[in-house]
Design a protein around this nucleic acid. Sequence first.
DNA 1: TGAAATACTGACTGATTAATCAGTCTAATA
DNA 2: TATTAGACTGATTAATCAGTCAGTATTTCA
Lengths: 194, 194
Amino acid sequence: MSKKEEILNAAIILFAEQGFNNTSITEVAKATNASTANIFYHFKNKEELFLAALENVKDGIMTHFDEYLRGRYFENGLQMMEEIIAFYLYLAGAMQQWFLLLHSHYPYRLALVNDLCRNHLEQTYNSLVDIFERAVVIGKEDGSIADVDSRKTALVIFSMVEGVVRFKIYNLYDTGALFYELIKSCNKILKYKE
Amino acid sequence: MSKKEEILNAAIILFAEQGFNNTSITEVAKATNASTANIFYHFKNKEELFLAALENVKDGIMTHFDEYLRGRYFENGLQMMEEIIAFYLYLAGAMQQWFLLLHSHYPYRLALVNDLCRNHLEQTYNSLVDIFERAVVIGKEDGSIADVDSRKTALVIFSMVEGVVRFKIYNLYDTGALFYELIKSCNKILKYKE
DNA sequence: TGAAATACTGACTGATTAATCAGTCTAATA
DNA sequence: TATTAGACTGATTAATCAGTCAGTATTTCA
């Protein structure tokens, strides 16, 4: 791993755990045995380091999902949705820094004035909702899912899962005990037509 | 309004919009035409100011919900749940600063080392989930809601609503268009037994 | 080997930070 | 009117911050 990658990985963890404004360049430097000047050699300024971290998180999530989905066979759309949710919750636990970074307020504030930041966030979320939507569309075709609005239903289920992820990474509720309830609720939303 | 209350209100807005670490005491002072020294006269330090802000948010949410629920009549538990969700989303829009503060990472990090902070967060969320649970229990009694696990179902629905609130305050998706889908999904979760 | 490009550092700067302190103002009361 | 307590301020501090710069290692390749 190059020094640049090392700095980037340390930045992701520190920004995620302590926030952007509470993480100093000196801390990132100490964590990687680099000088502060070296960090500014690899990254123009602190904001650009954060954007690189956010992009890295985006790529990481996408790569993991692509790898998970590639070549995998699902019985039907409903089962696909269940497994996607399970994988999403697994990933949020295994790569907690990524989701802490995505759940922090800073990038959303930055996105209001920085196009690159807005693009990273949009791409991340749209790709994820797309995966959820794909499961709904497939399920509607094979009959395992009722005739619902694919996009909106995918969004509601995604927001439900994101709510649980937030409880998990913020230590609010024991989400392990909530998992089966989440899957059951998802099933009801998808199976029944109202 | 006393100077102390004025400072507290400004602090809530600034902490919510910019985060704890990105808000300086000087900013709070400027916003209230006070000296920085005066802020430290009313609040021991910056952290205590934040805790006072968090407590104020907790009290505000509780007061608004108490007022909303007091004397109100609901047809049945299912309808009560629908109206609670609608009110929660209304409140999250009207008092956006409160929910921005509650969704920021800082208080959850502070809660790990500060009992008072942990208590504020626990009280806030437990009170809210309690309200959701009450609706489920009432609905199970009057037959409008199926025989589900009251607490867990309340938690899943609450996390779904919190997910949508996050989308709303972070400007991620147009949640107005999602509202009816949210209510429909909630209905399915509560009406059907699996 | 030597030169050029890349990677890296120590020392520094001006700005900003939370917090302190000695002392002033104001309003109520005795 | 004199006393006093609470509210408030200006000036200051030591520490920390992001970012700069001149110069030194290290690597690459002709």
